[in-house]
Simulated scan of single mutants.
Amino acid sequence: MSTLISFLGKGDPRKGYRTATYRFDSNVVKTVTFFGLALTDYLKPDRLILLGTPSSMWENFFDRDGIDPEAMEPLIDAVAAGRVDDRLLDLPCRQLAEQIGIPVDCLLIPYAREETEQAAILRLLAGVVQPGERLCLDVTHGFRHLPMLALVAARYLARVVRVEVEEIYYGALEMTPPAGETPVLRLRGLLDMLDWVDALATYDKDGDYGVFAPLLAKDGMAEGRAELLATAAYCERTSNPELARENLRRAFPALDTHDGPLARLFRETLKERIGWFRGLTRHDRELSLADAYLKRSDYLRATTFMYEAFVTRACYTQKCDDADAQSRDDAFNHARKKTPAVGQLKNLRNALAHGVRARGEHSDETAETIADEHSLRNVLKKLRNKLF
């Protein structure tokens, strides 16, 4: 089901809204006073939701043919006093629905003056939409701060109720040229920008840069290149950083040159976040990953990559094959004699990986370390400095 949500504002009750000629696209122009009804006619949604405060211009909005004049008299007085209630809106709302041929809900909202009222509006909206519903928002009318709230509402409803926000419309009256047509702005791109911001937050939390792949594809990156980023992220998170590196090397040129409008905003930040693959040696790259995961408190991956970096470096020093399991075991055992502290790192890695109490030498020490996050972080930092 498709639904249009439109705000009703407050203005001069004697003048109402100004008549404007809105240009929707190359073929559609509509001259109206209330943009929301023109947008309803243009989009043809299955339902219209009108949001207004107890002092919004309900009386001007409903002052049209087909609306019972007797219902208007008490509504006019209530608007003037800022005391419009659901009872006064019921009849005009039903009559409007009959006129335009779709259900109409008139939703009274507070003024959004502070956090409590702002949160209340989001709860009201969540209560009148359903999962899977396709929404368009009209932020043309209403108080000047409500478009900001509408943007938050769009993200909130998408995340919490699982609706799909298709577009945000704004009839830009102040952009009307002299004796010209008023442009209709489409602001869906603002939600796309928030998707990028969310992706950065997700990456900073768990290191999964694969979240950028669908965003880059949507932004117009060459076919298949964005998918390389998702593949690289998967390889890294399944402990195959060298295969991740190969995919990043293939994806990086496209990322470096892609000139999509949103990618330009975030490109340098994203390049910085995947820059670990530029490390000269394998153990440099593994250590960079260990540092990154320790920074975001992913202790299992931090200990895993730190341990692997130590073993890989030992292989490098001893000039043996770092891809061969037996060679890695031999190199580790040889290096451990000179650097016994790596045994503590191995114990921590095993305890975190298996989720059971460590056994054998230093088991009590290991259990005590991982029992407290502050202690574990400090121990890993010390081991990082001691081993590298």
Rank of each mutant, 00 (worst) to 15 (best):
A172Q: 02
P147T: 09
P177I: 11
T202W: 02
A81K: 15
G180Q: 12
R162C: 03
G207R: 00
G210P: 02
P178H: 08
T182V: 14
E167Y: 04
R113P: 01
A172V: 06
G101D: 06
L191I: 10
I102S: 03
I76W: 08
D198N: 11
E115M: 14
A126C: 04
A150F: 04
V160A: 09
A150Y: 01
P147C: 08
A97C: 13
L108Y: 06
Q95Y: 04
D204F: 13
E117T: 10
T140C: 07
K205Q: 11
A153C: 07
L108D: 01
G207P: 00
Y203E: 10
V129A: 01
A172K: 01
V104T: 08
Y111P: 00
A201Y: 08
R123M: 12
Y111C: 05
C93Q: 09
E133D: 14
V163T: 12
V84I: 10
P178V: 11
L151S: 03
D105A: 15
D85Y: 01
I102K: 03
K205S: 08
A80N: 12
D90G: 05
A179R: 15
L122V: 11
L151G: 01
V79F: 07
G132E: 11
G171I: 04
R94P: 01
R123V: 13
R123G: 05
R113K: 15
Y203F: 13
D192N: 11
D208M: 06
L124A: 15
W196A: 00
L194Q: 08
C106N: 07
